[in-house]
Amino acid sequence: MIDLKVLTQAVGDLDEKTILTMINDFVATNPSGEDAQKVVFACQQGMAIVGELFETNEYYVGDLIFAGELLSKTIDLLKPVLSGVASQKIGSIVIGTVQGDLHDIGKNIFGSMAEAAGFDVYDLGIDVSPSAFVEKVKEVKPQIIGMSGVLTLAIDSMKNTVKALNEAGLRNSVKIIIGGNPVNEDACKQIGADDFTTNAAEGLKTCQGWVK
């Protein structure tokens, strides 16, 4: 049987070779869906370690991106043995880079960390119009919307998106978090978001707090 503690630590260390060897060996034993769930959980705990090391400035954004890549590789390997098992989700988030902005690195980091933490993540991509946010919210009824942007014009687009949600009568059904280089407390107030972050790990904590 796979040593889940060793796996968690390997994910925390971003030790690709060890992780992939362990997961491949595990999948080769044709495990039950239940055991596969435990492996996923061990990886999620490893990602929590990554988040902590990021907060204490031992890891930086490059490490988070690499962690996201490792995690999606791992999940892909586990998918065949996970099928048929209902996974427990802690909530759902619609994310996107707002209209006029094409930067998606921060959004992708947040998305992969949120997924790792057990959220259903609906990623609308880049240059997302207010109406596209509104339509997706109507469709999937998420608890949270995450708007991302790097350019200063993103602030205006975020404001327009909140306005569109208001007009559609959806604003009060969701929490809104904004993230990216130009956001701060003043911008957050002006936009009418519930919270802001320039740090994916911190933003994830905020979201976890909202769905408790």
Partner: peptide
């Protein structure tokens, strides 16, 4: 280097 819907030239990944 491409133009976004709002007309700003940007550098995607």
């Amino acid at each position: 280097i491409v133009m976004s819907s709002s007309g700003f030239m940007q550098h995607p990944e």
